[in-house]
């Protein structure tokens, strides 16, 4: 039986998720099989154009994007490309990835959207535990 494979992209700023998808210098793409990370590739981005970033995600056949601040229209374009988006999250990138793999990640759970965080989430715990 073939393993369940998924590509998850996270724009990074050091160990954390980058605060702004459109300006992040690095996008890490994690490859998981049956929920386990089996590989990771880092892409360095020079262009700050949103469309170049969307093309990268699409060309790399990314299934899911986990990111910080994301322009509304860009989010719509990424979603239109068939990529699942978890935006406006903050904190340590690997812990966010682990939360996603556990099924505990929610969009808009970063500090800019605390109301939704209280309603839905467990992600503040990921961030707060770290700090």
């Amino acid at each position: 039986m073939r393993p369940n494979r998924e590509k998850i992209a996270i724009p990074r700023f050091g160990e954390d998720v980058a605060p702004c998808f459109g300006a992040s210098a690095t996008i890490a793409i994690f490859i998981t099989e049956d929920g386990e990370i089996v590989d990771q590739v880092d892409f360095t981005l020079h262009s700050q154009r949103a469309l170049d970033r969307i093309r990268l995600l699409r060309d790399q056949e990314v299934d899911t994007l986990i990111c910080g601040g994301l322009q509304e229209r860009v989010e719509e374009m990424i979603a239109a490309a068939g990529i699942r988006v978890f935006s406006w999250v903050a904190g340590n990138a690997e812990e966010l990835l682990a939360a996603y793999l556990r099924g505990q990640l929610h969009s808009r759970s970063g500090p800019s959207h605390p109301r939704e965080q209280q309603d839905r989430g467990d992600l503040s715990t990921v961030k707060d535990q770290k700090r």
Partner: peptide, 23 residues
């Protein structure tokens, strides 16, 4: 669009999401 109550204590990059935050 972020209230002071929500912003206080947060890292500024997580509130402003500016294009200059990283570089």
């Amino acid at each position: 669009g972020v209230s002071a109550e929500r912003a206080l204590g947060q890292r500024c990059s997580d509130v402003f999401h500016a294009d200059i935050c990283e570089r």
